[in-house]
Amino acid sequence: MSEGLVLDGVSAAYRDATVLHEVDLTVARGELLVVLGPSGAGKSTVLRVVAGLEPVTAGRVRIADRDVTDERPGRRNVSMVFQSYALFPHLTVVENIAFGLEVRDTPRRVARERARAAAETVGCAGLLDRRPGQLSGGERQRVALARALVREPDVFLLDEPLSNLDLALRAEMRTELRALHDRLGATMVHVTHDQTEALVLADRIAVLRDGRVEQVGTPDEIWRTPASSFVARFVGSPAMNLLPADGPLRPRGDAPTLGEEPLEIGFRPEAVTLDAAEGTPATVDRVEVIGEDAFAYLRLAAGHQVVARVPAARRPERDATVRLDVRWADTHLFHAATGRRYQL
């Protein structure tokens, strides 16, 4: 497998603060990697380091088997879609798309022709003579995409491109983006803080936390075997429940053999069963109903909170006492001190 993009021990700093700590990442050619993390985790910095907009303080960046660490942005052959789209307000759509070609001295006619083709690919061919000020958010997003792909770069960098769209449009564009990737077979790095977006789009996901890569894996791996309690809680909504392993809740079934050190057990709200015959008692703090589903916020002894997902039709009353239960098979174990996954 030839490499599309490699970050090899890359560190970066903003003023005096280090924002990336020796990040290692490999993106295969044709792969769509989603970089996921909360704001401030350094996601955008990863993109900017790849594009050359930020210098690295350590490590190397390779694009398509070429070390570009010391190259200026224009020499790296990447395209970028900015969160704000960064369209030129004084240029028409076709001029915006053709900009990269024209400043690289592509003949104007050829540039316009390719811009038109790119616009067709992303479905904005009808907007060519308008200006950004006349476009809706979704239309601008398409123009930004067209501009990114008109030039056939080695890597596409997308910096939260869907975050400015409303929910319905975001879902639609998500699907289209995935389809576009599959059609083009291009190497893409997509940054988002939206775990759903990551799970739907990604070939692989890299979860970033405080400038460090917490876990890299397929959406399945990220969901099923989170490498840390942070990943476990960041992916999934509501977040995974975490309790001390020797706490108030004893999962049902065959308990694994555990070591001496303190552990935490984690389980998703879906894994919780209410009204088990011999579960742990808890009080219902409040209940949120979202369509068919309801989320019950339960309080255990010693103040621990647990969220349970139940069918809306069978939701408990507020202040009711329930008994809850979890199976060992549905739990994850983490070291309490480091948050890393406990290897059985």
């Binding site: 594009a51 050359g52 907009l53 942005p73 224009g74 960064a86 030129f88 900009f99 990269g100 690289r104």
Partner: peptide, 18 residues
């Protein structure tokens, strides 16, 4: 003037004059 517009231009390798 938006900074990302200039970063966009840098990625497209536009010269200072451009």
């Amino acid at each position: 003037l938006p900074r990302d517009v200039y970063e966009m231009a840098a990625i497209e390798d536009a010269t200072g004059w451009d």
